[in-house]
Write a protein that binds this DNA or RNA. Sequence first.
DNA 1: AGGGCTAGGCTTTTT
DNA 2: GCCTAGCCCT
Length: 688
Amino acid sequence: MDADIKQRVAKLNPRQQEAVRYIDGPCLVLAGAGSGKTSVITTKIAYLIRECGMSARRIAAVTFTNKAAREMKERVSSMLPGRSGYGLTVSTFHTLGLNIIRAELKRLGYRSGFSLFDPEDAKALLRDLMHKDAQVDADQISRVQSIISNWKNDLVSPGQALSHAETDDDAYAAHVYEAYVRHLKAYNAVDFDDLIYLPAKLFEENEEALAHWRKRIQYMLVDEYQDTNSSQYRLVRLLMGERETFTVVGDDDQSIYAWRGARPENLVQLGEDFPRLKVIKLEQNYRSTALILNAANTLIANNPHVYEKTLWSQMGEGENIRVLVCRNEEAETERVASEILTRRIKLSAKWRDFAVLYRGNFQARLLELKLQHYQIPYKLSGGTSFFSRNEIKDAMAYLRLLINPADDNAFLRIVNVPRREIGPSTIEKLANYASERGVSLFAASGEFGLNQILSEKALKRLEWFCRFIDGVRRRMDQGNAISAIRSMFQEMDYEAWLHQNASAPVVAEKRMQNVWTLVDQLEKSLKPSDEEVAQSDGDITAETDDVEAAISRLVLRDILDQQAEEDDTDRVQLLTMHASKGLEYPHVYIMGLEEDLLPHRNAIESGTVEEERRLAYVGITRARRTLTLTLAKQRKAFGEMMECTPSRFLDELPEEILDWEGRADKEDPEKKFERGASAIAGLRSLLN
DNA sequence: AGGGCTAGGCTTTTT
DNA sequence: GCCTAGCCCT
């Protein structure tokens, strides 16, 4: 039928082919690191469409990151000729949920123009709600926030939480949860967790809605399945139901987000819920040398497994894994920096072929200094994100208020930014009035009854603000929404406000630039670029967004990180092991293989060393050709010099493939005795 | 309304 | 030892 797709499938290895061709029932693909799982997913999508005659509109592929979704979309569309890929859904869980909510607003009891709260907005609301009860304790707010998040992830409603609460703490959290949900609803707002919670609840409670979406989505593919939480699993199960038409791909050994609610046990659960489940293991690795895989396999064998898996490759044996023992953290970074400098020449490699991985972002600081000293170009991933900048939060609040006047959170953030002399006392009176009448702050600001409570001056200023926002809104509706938004920032002279608050003019200018970047991004997502239009026939891309949808997608960080990606200059990559998942580099350094750091102290104390081991496993399996592990004997932590113990993970690696350096010198004999086998291995390697 | 001081806490953070 | 957040003071 389709020669092209037949050829593509034929190029896959037997296991991969099996995974692509198996469509008669539920399918679990256990895909080891570097085993070509993305090829399997993308080929399977093309296979379903081209070979099985399934309409692209009936298929949904779900990932966890925007980046993964984008890459997958690209790869699929390159396999699909003409318009055959039209209507295919490739998105994150959250974007899928957002789209469901947008389509089901009425049934969910929301009005159009709803706001999406990011975790910071949610925290602000919680702070507000909890402020009344006890004295605010940032720590307690965070705790309640995570309890609520866990409840939502487990599809526990406020009522259920309340009735199941055992401790006073739980009861209090449940009480806050109830108020929180009520307020979100009043603000016509949803939070990140709601993007899964609301659709899943809707499908559980409303047959009609469920039937509609079951018709719409007939086959699902889920990437990184080990990272799904309960609600995401429920959502998939509800949608696919008895039809059992899904493929999930995952690797329990790469589950490193359990602390965030991911349930790797969903992999096992799947076998219980779907007895017909076909389990296919992908064990051939196309990335790393045999020695690197040997290290990875041996390490992870220390974890319990439901499904055993051993990676192998035909990439050659490769070099031994080096372990650099350094005097302290300063020497460690020095060592890494100078190594990269010399090895780049020796191996005639590019800067970008090197990656330095670490457990915590703080470890990057010293390294940065060293790299700067040697003038090594580097790219640091992570750090303060674009969206946590104040000017961006302000701008987002303006956008949200324009779309959703009921968004009190947004109103509060910007009603007096820039300064409009609308102070706390005015706001308090307004808030009282609004809550008595059960209307939003914005709506209340325009009401007549206010003149009883507010001074004439205060009233004027409020009215002026509302007229201003209304005016912008009107211009948005009439014509070019983006130009209305641009002139809004100009008219209120937001830049002048930034200048007042900045330490230097350049800082303010930079911040204003950030705001314009945000607006540009918004514009871009509204009208697809020429390039996108050109490839869009055959391509997936969705409906043209309206401003409202575009703003939501902005909150989901969809559009922004595209920019960062485009920056593909030749630089050494610095990233946490968490951030490294899914990536690969010819030469990898992992720093800080010490007890209390990797595995992290808190993990040791809370008994979650297994996840730390998986984290190390993820780090190791990023390496294609060479792997170097470093550790310090001493390290400054919490302002104090601490003696470090080498990580237990080093002991778990096969000693014969490790080359130790710098370990001979006067190690105290008792320690040597304690550390037994690996110490002897170290000595042996020195003798060789 | 804004700035400075003090106390606490200190992993990871796909959306 | 350093950073951040929140509170208090001017």
